[in-house]
Write a protein that binds this DNA or RNA. Structure first.
Lengths: 341, 341
DNA sequence: ATCGGGGATGGAAGCGTTTGCAGCTCGTGG
DNA sequence: CCACGAGCTGCAAACGCTTCCATCCCCGAT
């Protein structure tokens, strides 16, 4: 049987109250007493029971991390960032996955985190304002990543700018027929990441004086397969693009492979740019817009910790830096196709 | 304020004991009563406080998932498998990361999961038997993945066979000078995955009547960068290999890029085979040994659940299937280099 | 009709902490 | 020399649930 606070108290010849105070570093404990208690505790390998602490103290020392799924690169990286800072702060991090059909709705209806976390970091959840309200009613601190909520602390890269940067790179190289993979999704909610990237794409086209062709914007599901599928559709077009802007590196890689299988050379025949700077992107030479995903996780965790400290107060929404990394998948359009105005 | 069991009891006009029984589906509750309780509970949006449940009932309903890190593909996938089955079984999954210097030791010394989880799934932890014992003393069920513990339920692919399969593929193509990236690591513990793969590599060489050259076995850290670095070392050799067997697809991809940057054609000048079948491997055409990582996570979770059910009992150690997937990074050695006996 | 027994319910004792409050012991200023 | 406050410490009441045990009711068997 594991030692309880009472065992420690007995061994140190003090009351349980004093043990509790001594071990948690509260004031009003004589140094000699504290020492004695700490010794006793470590001799017994004592660790406070988190359930009992929580029940008595009201704090869970746990934060929930809500994501669509954890198997994908982006969310796994995010998680490492979140976990790194929260762990040293003494918190456990409990992931909640909203995958599967009706995942979001189920999540909002059951609020599975209730009574078990002090705070929540929500990444890319396509939540309606009303759903955000319900979550807040569960009395948790809340920080969002990616898709931001009105009146809720959140951080994100500037997705419009990121898309503009990527597509601007393409237009700068002379491309006029530029596709987008993974922009607007048929999402009933305002899942802002793809939407914003779509707008940035449109912006950049417009800035370059290029008309928009609706058939060049195809969904991609933010997965390798999705990117591949999207590329197939694009190649089947009467007038295929000379460049594609994929909203994630994984889609870009999927698309790239399909293009090459179809006999296209990248970048000579087709340019491709992604977003993320996935770990492998450097190794496949993918031009991309880099964002510091781990850093985003860390920052989100910090913001969450700050929420319980009334002294600090940052801006409600925070934007993180992005950067164009030019590698070997982008170049000028094939001759005779590009500059034909 | 969130509703407590007492609120529900009052509203349903029964005692808290009955509410507890009714809500948990215990027998000896009249159907009509149960119905009344359930109605009251849902009207109040009642959810039992997990801390209180645990304290009173002794079960945490959460399992810990111990990994070196979570940002890497393999562990992220493993996690999705684990999480998928444990979530439907009503368990929370709490990840513990052992990264950083002294991570393992710190973990074993503090046993941060104590009193917090009912069970533990430990993946690839380089633990000494004594350390395993300490963990077991914390009164948790235990299942290991990858690196197995003596007398502890665990599952893994047959790493010796996997390596043999990969290297056998290479020797079958005619390669005689075959390097290994990421075999034995300078690990004070018996971290069996790399060790086993090293033995498989040696086996296959021997089976093909090829002598072993120690300088062809280089570490790789199981990362993209590590693979790249390893390849640099191999290319600097007086007599570089015509094929490399990388112990993970990420190392393979890192190596492949370095080789190509050095002007080598893959597979014409250099063949590369990995292990894992990483998501992107299909898209970079990497020949590899496939293992079902998500499936391993799922299976581990099932085994853990079975541990609390004395009726079931499988073998202590379980091996999962592997399969050679031939794609476009392996081929016969360049003429004049291969069959020169 | 009476008794026995099983199913349904309630009472209440924990589970291991935290924390408000009270009490005790000094040292210091009046 | 006494009173008083500051600093330590202990007592005991929560916290919200589970579960053992006792109680009650109703029905069939004798």
């Amino acid at each position: 049987m594991a030692a309880t606070i009472e065992d420690v108290a007995r061994r140190a010849a003090v009351s349980v109250a004093t043990v509790s105070r001594a071990l948690r570093g509260l004031p009003n404990v004589a140094p000699s007493t504290r020492e004695r208690v700490m010794t006793a505790a470590s001799e017994l390998h004592y660790v406070a029971d988190p359930s009992a602490s929580r029940l008595a103290g009201g704090r869970n020392l746990t934060v929930g991390f809500v994501v669509p799924m954890l198997g994908q690169w982006y969310y796994a990286k995010l998680f490492s960032g979140v976990e790194a800072v929260l762990t040293v702060a003494g918190y456990d991090v409990l992931p909640f996955t909203m995958s599967g059909p009706g995942g979001v709705r189920r999540f909002v209806e059951t609020l599975p985190f209730r009574k078990r976390v002090d705070g929540l970091i929500v990444a890319d959840a396509p939540l309606e304002p009303a759903q955000f309200r319900r979550i807040e009613q569960a009395e948790v601190d809340l920080v969002t990543i990616g898709t931001l909520g009105q009146g809720i602390v959140g951080l994100s890269v500037d997705n419009v700018a990121a898309a503009r940067l990527a597509v601007g790179h393409l237009t700068g190289l002379g491309h006029r027929r530029i596709a987008q993979i993974g922009g607007i999704v048929d999402d009933p909610f305002h899942f802002s990441v793809p939407v914003d990237r779509y707008h940035g794409y449109r912006d950049a086209l417009e800035a370059a004086g290029i008309g928009h062709d609706e058939e060049l914007a195809v969904p991609g599901n933010f997965s390798l397969e999705g990117g591949a599928e999207a590329m197939h559709r694009l190649l089947a077009l009467d007038e295929p693009p000379t460049a594609v802007f994929a909203c994630s590196d994984e889609m870009a890689i999927g698309a790239m492979q399909v293009a090459r299988d179809a006999g296209l050379r990248v970048p000579e025949d087709l340019s491709i740019v992604g977003i993320d700077d996935h770990d492998v992107s450097e190794y496949v030479g993918l031009t991309t817009i880099r964002q510091d995903v781990v850093g985003q996780g860390e920052r989100a965790a910090q913001r969450l910790l700050e929420l319980s400290d009334p002294a600090t107060s940052g801006p409600l929404h925070e934007h993180l830096p992005i950067r164009l990394i030019v590698r070997r998948t982008t170049g000028p359009p094939p001759p005779g196709v590009g500059f034909r105005w």
